[in-house]
Design a protein around this nucleic acid. Structure first.
Lengths: 242, 242
DNA sequence: CGTAACTTTGACCTAAGTCAAGGCGCGTGG
DNA sequence: CCACGCGCCTTGACTTAGGTCAAAGTTACG
């Protein structure tokens, strides 16, 4: 049973900007189905193309690139509301793999309709471009983190950003959120080894800043984490939902 | 004296995709002037907005972010044909600073016309989105470099990418290109200290892989650099010019 | 000729990587 | 119900890439 866009559970959240009736109508036509997949499954594969584009409706995922020697760089995590497949839609092929970290539900869109969207829905096209620019912005921040911050700062930064995204989406209860990732995921995100990541986590735990067990992450003192990470503490603004 | 888009010296290069007559006509209207600036000048400033957007016509520049402790992360270099100000155009403000490394000439566009472009020129809007996705792709690769590669690999990667971009634009003569950057720029690009960068450069010089003096960079063996960088050796495809 | 920006080199230090072993929790199958 | 295997986390011992500090050499330029 496919949810109609007019009943989309995401759209109502204040993390997302409102949609006009005509936008909504278009999205309804653009949407061709819903996909439910199991944790660990790959959604889109680096180097391939896909006739489908997605938006995460429910669940968490992970985006990563694989180098030719097998090393892995985690590019970002996927949260509900995130658009998946921009590159597959616009360019020849995906530049990274997207994998489900939990069971996920995805909205499915038709790639071939993307071009018609640019013709008939300039506001939606604008939003999509905005999303791409936003992602570029985030990657720039990540780049600065890997290039300029030391281990403990990176970890603090990573957890803070992750948590802020979750919070914005209303995914956090009492300072804690679902966190289905491994230490290796965090290590590959931040350019650290798994062993070193483990030791840095211990430091944060000893300083009572975080708790992480049973796939739940709790931040006890986000401001202090922000201080360590040398980053201003701020909540993301509303953004278009795609 | 402002060059008309129909005589744009960039558009003819095979690095860029062709433009239809109607696209050309639109660009002509979209373009409101030309800006010539001196080396060292800032074009757009992180955290500010601008009524103008630019395309680099001539010269080289550098994009960077500044952290609150003053450290600098170079995000990318600016080559002729690069669009400057996407974030200022779409989002509230710029997320990084753009600075001229040489004297530069820029095409100037009106920010307020950007939205009308999405309405009236879907193909141009599509191209702009493509560009944003392309930049996202590049930043992802940079992220993987900083996160997963060791110093010597990073330097080899950086030079190779830089050179390939120059070559694609026809900026290289006999294996060498203009290179108005400093060791500190390279260090800040790759997340290394200036001193260590210097030592790694010596290694590359000793192995006869590069020559760099008088603001000129020569790659003597790009394939070997690609091998060191663990990256496939490939030439970028044509892309839309904005 | 003097100053400033950039590069080179040496000496030293430390953050982070590697290797290796052990522990813990969980699911599967005998 | 136990035991084996597997994935993940933890910890110790050791090594090393790369950072920091400092000084001297170069080059460009007013």
């Amino acid at each position: 049973m496919v949810t109609s866009c007019s009943h989309c559970p995401l759209r109502k959240r204040d993390a997302f900007m409102d949609m006009t009736a005509s936008e909504l109508e278009f999205m309804q036509r653009f949407k061709i189905g819903e996909l439910t997949i199991e944790a660990g499954t790959q959604i889109l594969l680096e180097g391939t193309t896909s006739p489908q584009l997605f938006t995460a409706l429910y669940g968490l995922g992970i985006r990563y690139k694989t180098l030719i020697n097998g090393q892995r760089q985690v590019v970002n995590f996927v949260f509900p509301g995130d658009f998946i497949g921009l590159q597959a839609g616009l360019m020849r092929e995906m530049q990274h793999t997207v994998e489900a970290a939990t069971n996920m539900t995805l909205c499915v869109f038709s790639r071939s309709e993307l071009w018609s969207m640019f013709r008939s829905q300039p506001d939606r096209a604008f939003d999509l471009t905005w999303l791409a620019a936003q992602e570029e912005h985030f990657l720039g921040k990540s780049l600065a983190t890997l290039g300029q911050r030391v281990g403990i700062e990176r970890i603090a930064w990573g957890f803070l950003k992750l948590y802020q995204r979750g919070e914005r989406l209303g995914l956090c209860k009492g300072g804690s959120m679902r966190f289905p990732f491994t230490q290796t995921d965090i290590a590959d995100l931040l350019g650290l080894s798994q062993v070193h990541t483990n030791r840095l986590l211990r430091k944060l735990r000893e300083r009572q800043l975080i708790t992480w067990k049973n796939e739940r992450l709790t931040l006890h003192d986000p401001e202090e984490l922000a201080r360590i990470a040398q980053t201003p503490f701020s909540v993301p603004e509303p953004r278009p939902l795609f």
